[in-house]
Simulated scan of single mutants.
Amino acid sequence: MAEVYNLVNKKLRRNIMDYRIFLDTANVKEIEEAVETGIVAGIATNPNKMANVGRKYEDVIKDIRSFFDGPIAVEAIPTETEEIIEEAKRLNDLSENIVIKIPANKKGIKAINKLVPMGIKTNATLICNPGQALAAGLAGSPFISPFISRVDYIGHDGMELFRKVRKMYDFYDIKSVVIAASIKNCNDAIESILAGADSLALTYEVFNQLFNHPVTEEGIKKFTNDYNSIYGK
Rank of each mutant, 00 (worst) to 15 (best):
V60F: 02
D18H: 02
P47L: 12
I61A: 02
A73M: 14
N27K: 12
I39K: 11
R55M: 13
D59I: 08
K49S: 14
A76K: 02
G54S: 11
I31Y: 07
A34Q: 05
G42L: 06
E33M: 13
V74Q: 06
K49G: 08
I39A: 09
R14C: 00
I61Q: 01
V40Y: 03
V60G: 01
D59S: 13
K29A: 15
V40D: 12
P71F: 06
P78N: 06
A34K: 03
N48Y: 10
A44N: 12
V74C: 04
K29S: 15
M17V: 05
V28M: 07
N27A: 07
E58M: 05
A34M: 08
G70R: 05
G70I: 05
G54N: 14
I77V: 15
V53Y: 07
I61R: 02
G38A: 10
N48A: 15
I39F: 14
T45K: 09
R65K: 13
E32W: 07
E36A: 15
E75W: 01
M50P: 06
S66D: 10
I31L: 09
A44Q: 08
K49Y: 08
I77Y: 01
G54C: 14
N15V: 00
I21K: 01
E58P: 00
T37Q: 10
V53R: 08
V74P: 02
F22D: 07
N15D: 03
N27C: 12
I64Y: 03
E75M: 03
N52T: 14
I31W: 06
K62M: 07
I64M: 07
A44D: 13
A41H: 13
R14I: 00
Y19N: 03
D18Y: 04
K29T: 13
R14E: 14
E36N: 07
F22K: 02
D24R: 05
L23E: 05
K29G: 07
P47T: 10
D69T: 10
S66N: 13
V40K: 07
V40R: 04
E75S: 00
G38M: 12
R14A: 07
K29Y: 12
R55A: 11
E80D: 07
R65E: 11
D69W: 06
K49D: 09
E80G: 01
T79D: 00
R55L: 13
I39V: 15
K49E: 13
I31C: 04
G38L: 12
A41Q: 09
N52M: 15
N48S: 15
R20Q: 06
I64V: 15
G70N: 09
T79F: 00
A76E: 01
N15T: 01
R14P: 00
Y57T: 07
A51L: 15
T25I: 06
I43Q: 05
E75I: 02
K29P: 00
T25E: 03
S66W: 04
I21D: 00
P71R: 01
R20K: 14
I16D: 00
G70A: 11
A34V: 06
E58D: 14
